[in-house]
Design a protein around this nucleic acid. Structure first.
Length: 800
DNA sequence: CCATTACACATTTTT
DNA sequence: TGTGTAATGG
């Protein structure tokens, strides 16, 4: 019996497809990694393909690591010669070899988001751009999208002609790019962008890799952006031994799991694969090995509402399993309490079968984790939050890395400026600005101008401090190059000599100081491990680049027994026996940003895919929940349950709710998530829709909304205890639902062409009124503030 | 130059 | 709510 016998027919067909383009549409949990790894084994063992000729590209280090391990396990020989790595790491390796052809130095550094932001701030300052009207964040997105679309600064400028804002963007982009190059740095997008540029302009570099990689596999193909798409297309264009062009390209993905449009992912890359390669074979993997029938039916029911997707439906031979539960709680607080106590209860009841790491709490935004954290701490349940605070983004780590970058070359001015006054050396902003000006005029790098302090006007007393800083860096530099000290020992030396550790000890409270020291220790360990394991000669640049390309989820290992909390985005690719998908409310999930977007249909579809991803993470049980009231940024918000809940057929859901008497509810239906203390000033004074009961079977039949009074605690009944998951209290009836009809919006009192008064912007002309789901979106031209789009519910416009 | 305070501001984020 | 940046005064 061969290893291929364990595959189902579709999987097997995919594995045995050895030549030409192949698209594998792999639904969630359909065993795509298995297919990829078995296909690698098959090519090597049955088709005599050299392991050196195989390239497997992933998005995350975690995925790359997993694939690497599994390839090593099933491929009998030469497994380590298969190139398995992320897009970015691969491109860094390509660029280390050839980037000099593009005028960069081969020991370039990689800028992470923080560095990018710092650089962008400098650019704005230099170009006199008011960061109040044009935020760095926006500018970074502009530059990032431009690069994702392979638009050079010059092209961008050309396209921007005649448009003032775009012309500004073009100036920023050009200056930003210029500075990156001066600093010999690439940002994340550059890594792909520059590789494509390399392959387009340097045929030798391209054909070198085309000849090398004859079989290319791409995981999560639905998440590729235009630049990555082109990169793949260029590489997968090799010639075989008969001089024929062949496209041995195998892409795996699921259009339903495309959730990174906001980062430039282009879903058409997967949808149009067959157009690009008319001879492509297409194989659908629809059998799911992860979840129960109930969970998959729920997932299918939701995703069915998206248009323009590849037709497919997941099924499983697993049993029906327990029903999917939806509970609406009184507040986010009670939601968290119930979920945490449910986890504790399950663990207590089934200590032999359930452990903490079987449970995942998933949410839309990182901010939602806080309540859970509180409850988990209170109960003493071990947990891990995967999230925005990446190890390598911590201040102390970034400081140490900045020191290393400075020692490594000093071309990266952002790094030098970061640590020139850390710990405090009495070198302030004015001094830095003066050096900057001098450096720009003299055409040298920031660090190099530190050697010429005598010539810099206005430096005065700071000169001595600057030279002692330079002396420190130089001594570390020589220790590294001539004495052959290890990287890790250099770090120890610099921490000691700069007094960095002392500063932490003095200025932080005991706990944070201890945390920081521990982090630094861990960094030293990682450095030492890197030096030991490096394939070739370990270099500082390589370590730094590697480190810049690490995400938080990458460090999620199964070895610690913790409940895991993370955003839906981070959860992609993972699975858990028990999943809690919380915050299922309109305005939270789908987020208000998508509901109020210019193109809500499109954005809601992306949110729906996110929902699909969340649902399909669950193996055995899935609990959906919402809160009637939620504290968001210190304000109470009242949201109706998510529209995605409506999309799940009633018979699949076990609905549990909070008890509340209908008569206590005020009549106003809020147009949008409400504001603390807001007066229910004239919205939807309908009051004529009779409440109907949840148990009456009408749940999910159409539009409805929960009315709300403003402030929590005013016209609102005292919070009642939430029904516990799994243990419905029969004394508490299902909560009543009232129907809501969007046509019942209150008349606005003004319309297009009217002049209105706004609290902040003054008077303006209404140019457009669009009726959204529960509110009007008003476009107003203000002579003072420009054109603004706002929701009638928030704007409080008055006709004049 | 640096500490303090006032103020504005908030999606998601594989790399 | 709580964080991170801009203005202020010592």
């Amino acid at each position: 019996m061969s290893i291929y016998d364990t595959l189902n027919p579709e999987q097997r067909r995919a594995v045995e497809h050895d030549r030409g383009p192949l698209l594998i549409l792999a639904g969630a949990g359909s065993g795509k990694t298995r297919v990829l790894t078995h296909r690698i084994a098959y090519l090597i063992e049955e088709r005599n393909v050299s392991p050196f000729q195989i390239l497997a590209l992933t998005f995350t280090n975690k995925a790359a690591r997993e694939m690497r391990e599994r390839v090593d396990k099933i491929v009998s020989y030469g497994a380590q010669n298969v190139w398995v790595s992320t897009f970015h790491s691969s491109c860094v390796r390509f660029l280390r070899r050839f980037i000099h052809l593009l005028g960069y130095d081969r020991n370039f550094t990689v800028y992470d988001t923080d560095d990018q932001k710092t650089l962008m701030r400098e650019v704005c300052k230099y170009l006199n751009i008011d960061t109040k009207t044009m935020k760095e964040r926006t500018l970074m997105n502009v530059v990032s999208s431009a690069k994702d679309e392979l638009t050079s600064p010059e092209e961008y400028a050309k396209n921007a002609e005649g448009d003032y804002t775009k012309t500004q963007y073009a100036r920023v982009y050009a200056e930003y790019q210029k500075r990156l190059k001066t600093n010999n740095a690439l940002d994340f997008d550059d890594i792909i962008f520059k590789t494509v540029e390399l392959f387009r302009t340097q045929p030798e570099a391209l054909s070198y890799y085309q000849r090398r990689f004859r079989y290319i596999m791409v995981d999560e193909y639905q998440d590729t952006n235009t630049a990555q798409f082109l990169l793949i297309s260029l590489l997968a264009n090799s010639e075989n031994e008969y001089g024929e062009t062949e496209h041995n390209l195998c892409v795996v993905g699921d259009d339903d799991q495309s959730i990174y449009k906001f980062r430039g992912a282009n879903i058409h890359n997967i949808l149009d694969f067959e157009k690009q390669y008319p001879d492509a074979a297409v194989i659908k993997l629809e059998q799911n090995y992860r979840s129960t029938t109930n969970i998959l039916d729920t997932a299918n029911a939701v995703i069915r509402n998206n248009l323009g997707r590849k037709d497919k439906e997941l099924w499983t031979a697993n049993g029906k399993g327990s029903p999917v539960v939806f509970t609406q709680f009184e507040s986010d607080y009670e939601e968290a309490e119930a979920i945490v106590s449910d986890i504790a209860g399950t663990i207590q009841e089934e200590p032999d079968t359930a452990s903490y790491h079987d449970f995942a709490i998933l949410y839309r935004t990182n901010a939602q984790s806080r309540v859970f954290e509180e409850k988990l701490i209170f109960r003493g349940i071990p947990y891990k939050i995967i999230g925005s605070i990446n190890f390598y983004q911590r201040k102390e780590i970034k400081d140490v890395l900045a020191y290393l970058k400075t020692i490594d070359g000093g071309a990266d001015s952002i790094a030098v400026k970061r640590i020139i006054n850390v710990p405090k050396r009495g070198i302030g902003q004015t001094t830095i600005d003066r050096i900057d000006t001098y450096a720009a005029e003299a055409g040298m790098s920031f660090y190099d101008s530190l050697h010429h302090t005598g010539e810099i006007p206005g430096i005065g007393r700071a000169a001595a401090k600057l030279s002692s800083f330079v002396a420190l860096i130089e001594s570390l530099k020589s220790r590294l190059s001539s004495c052959g000290s290890s990287l890790s020992s250099i770090v120890e030396t610099l921490l000691d000599e700069t007094g960095y550790l002392d500063e932490i000890r003095e200025n932080e409270d005991d706990q944070t100081a201890a945390d920081r020291m521990a982090n630094i220790d861990e960094l030293i360990n990682k450095l030492a491990a890197y030096e030991e394991n490096a394939e070739e000669a370990p270099t500082l640049s390589d370590f730094l680049a590697e480190v810049a390309l690490v995400a938080d989820v990458d460090n999620l290992t199964g070895d610690s027994d913790c409940v895991v909390l993370m955003t839906l985005h981070s959860a992609k690719g993972l699975e858990f026996p028990h999943v809690y998908l919380c915050g299922m409310e309109d305005g939270v999930f789908p987020g208000y940003m998508s509901i109020n977007a210019e193109n809500p249909e499109l954005e809601i579809e992306e949110e729906r895919r996110l929902c699909y991803v969340g649902i399909t993470r669950a193996m055995k049980t899935l609990r959906l929940s919402a809160a009637h009231m939620r504290m968001v940024r210190g304000e109470a918000q009242y949201n109706r349950p998510s529209r995605f809940i409506d999309e799940i057929p009633r018979h699949l859901l076990n609905i549990r709710g909070i008890n509340r008497s209908a008569s206590l509810l005020p009549d106003d239906a809020f147009p949008q998530s409400s504001i603390r203390g807001a007066k229910p000033s004239g919205y939807g004074q309908s009051g004529k829709n009779p409440p109907y009961s949840l148990s009456g079977g009408s749940y999910g039949a159409g539009n409805y909304s929960y009315p709300s009074s403003g402030k929590y605690g005013t016209g609102f009944p005292r919070p009642l205890s939430a029904t516990e998951f799994d243990r419905p209290d029969p004394t508490k009836a299902a909560r009543p639902i009232r129907q809501f009809d969007s046509k019942n919006l209150a008349p606005l009192g003004y319309g297009i062409g009217d002049t209105v008064q706004h609290v902040k912007f003054g008077t303006g002309l209404v140019t457009n009124v669009v009726q959204g789901g529960r509110d009007y979106e008003i476009t107003v031209d203000f002579p003072s503030a420009g054109t603004k789009k706002m929701l009638a519910g928030f704007a409080k416009l008055k006709k004049i």
